[in-house]
């Protein structure tokens, strides 16, 4: 028996919108720790890891570890029927081939049940090693989204370089090239507008902008994004989910042969 009650149901709606472009089908894993997902895109270039901790739910009951295969587009279709202020409860019985999403309006005057068929998904679980990163950039998520969008109108790839001067995003294409430099900025009154750069050593890596743009769909979950970079390692683009956990995107670099 599984019953997870999330008062801020809009979080789940946003999570789905953030990942459904990248991944079509995925297993949601439920355990005593929380509600989680790890899935790669079909080309094995990008991976999404989601964690919503048990403590973040108003009610969290998970009698035994359960893995539920869901089509994310179908799940998104159902969650779009929940109001932004609705409380969402996820329910499943042991051995059942369906999951139920229950939406309650804040005034409790409307309650809806949506039952969705589960699917068997063979998915490979990757062990992601803990890495020391050469540079960690924390910046406003809206700014990062804007940069990725702007650069993708010029080129297909972005070179992210971190130096003492700041973090530089560069691209080039048929019509020309572009460089955007963001400097460290902690003097702002609002912490959510800060740009903070922790650099052990300079690093420069190349990534496909198509994926970066897809990751920025998570921007509504968090005011800030953290980008962790190391030479010849996948970049980690992390959006914290208030009080609950995170959504992390890993993207393999493009490397000169």
């Amino acid at each position: 028996m599984l019953e997870l009650r999330l008062v801020q149901g809009s979080l789940l709606k946003k999570v789905l919108e953030a990942i459904r472009e990248l991944v079509t089908d995925a297993n949601f894993d439920c355990s005593g720790t929380g509600f989680s997902l790890q899935a790669m895109d079909s080309s094995h270039v990008a991976l999404v890891a989601l964690l919503l901790r048990a403590e973040g739910f108003e009610h969290y009951r998970c009698d035994r570890n359960l893995s539920m295969g869901m089509n994310l587009n179908n799940m998104a279709k159902m969650l779009r029927c929940a109001g932004n202020d609705d409380i969402i409860t996820i329910k499943a019985d042991d051995g059942s081939d369906t999951v139920t999403f229950m939406f309650e309006s804040p005034k409790q005057d409307k309650i809806a049940d949506f039952e969705m068929k589960l699917m068997d998904i063979d998915s490979e679980h990757l062990g992601i090693p803990d890495s020391e990163y050469q540079a960690i950039v924390r910046m406003p998520s809206a700014e990062f989204m804007r940069i990725c969008k702007d650069l993708s109108s010029i080129g297909d790839t972005v070179i992210i370089s971190v130096t003492k001067e700041g973090v530089k995003f560069s691209t080039s294409g048929e019509i020309g090239s572009a460089n955007i430099v963001c400097r460290q900025n902690q003097t702002v009154d609002k912490p959510e507008e800060a740009t903070v750069i922790e650099m052990q050593e300079p690093v420069s890596l190349t990534f496909a902008l198509r994926y970066m743009n897809s990751f920025t769909k998570a921007s509504s979950l968090s005011d800030q994004v953290t980008i962790s970079l190391s030479s010849e390692l996948p970049v980690v683009v992390e959006y914290k989910i208030a009080e609950m956990g995170y959504i992390r995107f890993y993207l393999a670099p493009k490397i000169e042969e």
């Binding site: 080309s43 270039v45 990757l126 062990g127 496909a208 393999a252 493009k254």
Partner: peptide
Amino acid sequence: TSTQKTLDIFFRSS
């Protein structure tokens, strides 16, 4: 020109 790597070479299957 650069080549797009896949995640399999960085993360081990578990």
